[in-house]
Computed example of a mutant assay.
Amino acid sequence: MITQPKFAVLHVVDQGRAVEFFAGTLGFEVLTDAPCGDGDRWIEVRPPGARTYLVLAAGDPELAARIRERRGPMSTVWFDSDDLDATFAELSAKGVSFPVEPQAAPWDPGGTTRWAQFADPEGNLYGISAQD
Rank of each mutant, 00 (worst) to 15 (best):
M1L: 05
V9F: 03
V9H: 04
V12H: 02
V12F: 00
V13L: 00
D14F: 04
Q15C: 06
G16C: 04
E20L: 01
F21Q: 04
F21T: 11
F22I: 07
A23E: 09
A23G: 08
T25G: 04
L26E: 09
G27V: 09
G27Q: 07
G27K: 08
F28S: 12
F28T: 08
L31V: 13
D33F: 00
A34I: 00
P35E: 07
G37C: 10
G37I: 10
D38I: 08
D38L: 10
R41W: 07
I43H: 12
I43L: 15
E44Q: 15
E44M: 09
V45F: 09
V45S: 10
P47W: 03
P47C: 03
P48M: 09
P48C: 11
P48F: 13
R51N: 13
L56C: 04
L56A: 09
G59F: 03
D60K: 10
E62R: 12
L63V: 09
L63K: 05
A65T: 15
R68G: 15
E69G: 14
R70H: 12
R71E: 09
G72F: 08
M74A: 14
S75E: 05
V77M: 10
V77R: 07
F79I: 12
S81I: 03
S81Q: 02
D82K: 03
D85C: 00
D85G: 08
A86E: 04
T87I: 05
F88N: 03
F88K: 01
F88T: 14
E90R: 15
E90Y: 01
L91G: 00
S92Y: 00
S92V: 02
S92W: 01
A93K: 10
K94D: 03
K94A: 04
K94F: 02
P99C: 12
E101K: 13
P102D: 05
P102R: 13
Q103F: 00
A104E: 10
A105P: 02
A105Y: 14
P106K: 13
D108A: 13
D108M: 00
T112P: 01
T112M: 10
T112L: 10
T113Y: 12
R114M: 01
W115C: 13
W115S: 13
W115Q: 15
A116W: 08
A119M: 11
A119Q: 01
P121W: 03
P121G: 02
E122K: 07
G123E: 13
N124E: 11
N124Q: 12
L125C: 14
G127L: 09
G127S: 07
I128C: 06
I128T: 02
A130Y: 09
D132P: 01
D132S: 15
